[in-house]
Simulated scan of single mutants.
Amino acid sequence: MAIENIPEIYLKDATKNPDLFVYDFKMTNDVVKSKVNLGMNMFSFLQVGKKQVHFAGTSVEVNKDQSLLLKKGNWLWTELLETEAIYYCKLLFFSEKILKDFLEKHTQNKQQIVDETPFFIIRNDVYITSYLNSLAVISEAPSVFAENLLSVKFEEILLYLINKYGTTFETYLQSLIVKETSPFKKIIESKLHSNLKLEEIAFLCNMSLSTFKRHFINEYNISPGKWLQDKRLQKAKEILAQGNLKLSDIYLDFGYKNLSNFSTAFKNKFGFSPSETPS
């Protein structure tokens, strides 16, 4: 299962880096499982079908009566049809910059919030249905006009949800502002749950493998191979405990070429085999 870089794969012009972007996602397959590197925070306004999402040891499932606000990062998600012949959701991506501008303008709490929850569940209602219809109209407008309108519509939906959910939603928005880490750590931790090899991660850090290993030990006080293996096995254990994905679904995602090697490494770390993982 290849990594999908979203929203990059939806952009018509790969050179552009918009602060706001709307995309209509549709499918007719029964089930689609995706490994996603989500590069921007994203509203997923689900209108037809079901969506299951797994992120950093937690998961959530929503139906067409609910929508999600998802924190950027690495996700495993599954999209499913219900009785209809099509799955449809409207995706609204937004940058940290435009979120910071909104929070500066409309909220009083300037303190950075530490919240590990990667999603916020939104109950769809008449207002949101009307809002989504208005987004569809904007997409047909000339580009410059559409960009200005979309900026207003972004403020509108955030103000509405703050009114609907109060400080709970405002606090969640504050938590989406990521505290800056060193560029090196940022790259390492963004690739934590990928199946990239050390040589490939070193390349992304613009370092030779030997330099990368030295730098890693200085930052983390452990060898990169051992650190990555431990982190990836822990994530695999969390995913298996949820019971939604099988061992055969995930071992490639964590850098193992076959089930046997994965099972051996897993048992050496936790003392039991993947199939014995308690839920």
Rank of each mutant, 00 (worst) to 15 (best):
S143R: 13
S190N: 13
L196K: 10
G166R: 08
L70Y: 00
I177N: 14
L228E: 00
Q174P: 00
V31K: 12
F254Q: 10
H106T: 02
K185M: 04
S67M: 03
L198C: 04
G255S: 05
F25I: 06
K257Q: 10
K16M: 14
Y131M: 09
L240M: 08
M1E: 05
I113A: 06
I187C: 05
V36H: 07
S34L: 15
V62K: 11
K226L: 11
I98P: 09
T58E: 15
L91D: 13
Y160R: 06
N41I: 08
H54T: 10
S182E: 12
S175P: 13
N17M: 03
V60N: 11
A236D: 10
L80D: 03
T168W: 02
I6V: 14
F102V: 00
N195G: 15
N268C: 00
T129I: 04
I98F: 01
L192P: 05
V137Y: 09
N63L: 11
M27P: 00
E8V: 12
K71R: 14
L161S: 06
L233Q: 03
L68N: 03
L173K: 06
I3C: 01
N63W: 10
H54V: 15
N218C: 01
S67I: 01
I187G: 07
K267E: 08
S175D: 07
I239A: 13
S151H: 07
L38W: 09
G255Y: 06
K197H: 09
Q112Y: 11
C205Q: 10
K231A: 15
Y220W: 14
E180T: 11
V32A: 00
E96D: 13
P224N: 08
N195E: 01
N163H: 11
T129F: 01
G39F: 01
F154V: 01
L245D: 08
L198Y: 02
G49N: 06
V32Q: 00
I6C: 07
Y88T: 12
R232E: 03
L252D: 04
D115A: 11
I177W: 11
F21H: 12
E84L: 12
S67N: 02
V60I: 15
G166Y: 13
F102T: 00
L259Y: 02
